[in-house]
Design a binder for these strands. Sequence first.
DNA 1: CCAAAAGTGTTGACTGTACACCCATGT
DNA 2: ACATGGGTGTACAGTCAACACTTTTGG
Lengths: 220, 220
Amino acid sequence: MLRSYQSVTTDIVIFTIEQEELKVLLIKRAKEPFKNKWALPGGFILENEEPEKAALRVLKNKAGVSNIYMEQLYTFPGSGRDPRGNVITITYFALAPTEKIKIQKSKETQTPTFYSLKKLPQLAFDHKKIITYALKRLRSKLEYTNVVYSLLPQFFTFNQLQEAYETILDRELDKRNFRKKFILLNLIRSTKKVHKGIRQRPAQLYQFISCRPTELKKFF
Amino acid sequence: MLRSYQSVTTDIVIFTIEQEELKVLLIKRAKEPFKNKWALPGGFILENEEPEKAALRVLKNKAGVSNIYMEQLYTFPGSGRDPRGNVITITYFALAPTEKIKIQKSKETQTPTFYSLKKLPQLAFDHKKIITYALKRLRSKLEYTNVVYSLLPQFFTFNQLQEAYETILDRELDKRNFRKKFILLNLIRSTKKVHKGIRQRPAQLYQFISCRPTELKKFF
DNA sequence: CCAAAAGTGTTGACTGTACACCCATGT
DNA sequence: ACATGGGTGTACAGTCAACACTTTTGG
């Protein structure tokens, strides 16, 4: 049987929430193709490297972050990083609270920046399509998994939780109904701590009972 | 940046329904590795071939079928077809009514056979895992898309439709509730034709209004 | 005592589920 | 006339969506 070899890259959509906006990490390319255009962080998968390992490596190098939620998105055909040949890219999406992300600069990647999904610049390759796909996946994952835990700090208020949902889904939710539903899900536990807001009544802090990806029966 | 080349394969999970059982197409491997073990049809992706094109080519060659529902499943790391190196496999799943499938024999692939998911033989590589993953995807797709159209003949009775659901989900459904729900979805249209059963009252034949993949609001 | 966010329940509409009988046909 | 699968309706329960006021704190 014929055997052929291809170059394989990985690109990662790293979402975070900052100032009530859903943002994605972009870097400015230092090299051709698409020199000086914004793109998703990514790179070639090395010899004998598993794709997921490669994605984790990129996450570590470009965003200084590990131990966060990441999953494979889709494998796209050669919209290639390599202008010469046939390239496929295995894409991933990851979620992290802003605090955990320590953006790393390098020779190759200038000015890594979080861009609001509502104000994306022109993007290299087919990265616009990839981000759109990732957003769709993220929204649907919100509805039947507990992945939000990956966007919130360890202790958080109910309002922070709700705002995370509202930001990602881009619509408002009813406060009372949201609480009721979420409590029934049994994913979070109230703690003794409170969040001392500057002027108002302090809010109770919650934490996730489990910070592992879990599928729910039903939701939203 | 480092550039490396990998061999990339594709494997396809082709589902069909036969005798009220959900079956998957397997071939017996003629070569090492896993010579004489059952495996999913698949093969190397050729130079400058898009992964999806490769999958369609395999579908055509191994199952003699085109123009059926197919989607990408997941990209697995090197559980490789190639014993020497690092191989990744981009997997797809496809659905076709038994009538459409014309199994093709070739030098390389002996005895292509449909196996019931309940009686799978020992499988090469990590193909068991891939099939499990495909089944999970198929079941959830049933609930929010119209993909069943791809498993049924052009004209079908309500009972055939319901049996398809029951077979895939592996549980019984209530006849009246199923009809009500499905009619509300507006996916199928009744035709003037009837299915002349041998002894009983003839059943009305239906057809899908659209045979393109469509996402539903809600279902099941 | 005022501003600001925290916290809490009820009702009506809708959706899903359980369930049993008559109908049309071929033999 | 009977055996076989085709076809239909209702009632109850559970879930979802809409909605407004009281509480606690800091300044």
